[in-house]
Amino acid sequence: MKNTFWKALGVLLLLYVFSMTLLVPLGPGLLEFQDKGKVQHSDIVGRSLPVYEVIGFGTHWDENSDSLGIFVKSKGQLAALEIFEITDETHALVGLDLPYSIPSKSWNVLVNHPIDGTLLLENALFLSDRFVDASIELPTPAVQEFGSNLPFHFPYQPQIVETIRNLMLHVPLWFTMFLLMGIGFVASIGQLSNNRNMEADMRAFASVRVGMWFGVLGLATGSFWARFTWGAWWVDDPQLNGALVTVLVYAGYLVLRNAVDDERLRARLAAVYNLFAFVILVILLMVLPRFSESLHPGKGGNPGFNSYDLDDALRMVFYPAVIGWMLLGTWMYLLTLRMTRINRKLDLLP
């Protein structure tokens, strides 16, 4: 009963993870702030203003549209934009009313709405034809700030957008691979301390064999993620190349085992190789990428999900995903180990 419980728990946790991952909506965000290349007369200021289009994602601008506020902000100074037209729930045309002398050329766009709360698009507006005067003070607009009023949702992240759901696959798959390769590392140390007992060798073999699957799936999900966020299936990045080399090093472990017939020699050679493979894994995936520039989150000054991106909604799914995948991986490892034991016993039968 106890033996079945944790296995069923692993499957149930993963069912919960898949349900949440695929069905929880993404929160609203801002996609673009585009210059429409035309002007429109403003009745409020009594002159023509350049027209810009604000494009949102998952926003609700057609509801409570009177309360929608769109602003630009730079160097702590805020300026309200005149809303000419709310085209639909995610599109609005606005007029930019800024003086010739401005505190900075680069501006953030802020949108405030009673349902969506405050949304930010950093460096969305660059005014190259204006004069910069850091001492200038713009008149402060009246702002009525609303908090968001949304159901349970995943946070919107620029560039990542809907692909943030892949977090529940990609990262836990690598964590499970680390766990399994760690089991293999400990087993290999055990094998080297007592080369007569083949149990440790079988443990190391089973863990690496299953861990390889998780490594390959980690690479595949990472490659898909890169395609939709960075625009390429593979980029020359220390983290990505390190992950590929690690998987290839472990593939070498499996090849090495098949190349040696003598059981004890094979166990000793494979154990030594496995120790080096694990050290390479730690260096290539955990140490080196932190000392070099990388597109990958958590490396080279590029913030990881754990710093500020992983909010409470993501945590509610991410942590069960890590536990679920690890339980499934452990179950697979135990099955492979039992199969390896049976194969060995069959080989030893007269």
């Binding site: 957008v161 939709f228 966020t229």
Partner: peptide
């Protein structure tokens, strides 16, 4: 890249609105 794709075919409409999310989940 994703922003341009989303602008042309918002996933919220394509993936959730069409019920494809339920098919993928199933």
């Amino acid at each position: 890249m994703t922003s341009l794709l989303l602008e042309a075919h918002p996933l919220e409409g394509l993936f959730f609105g069409s019920g494809k999310a339920y098919v993928v989940l199933a």
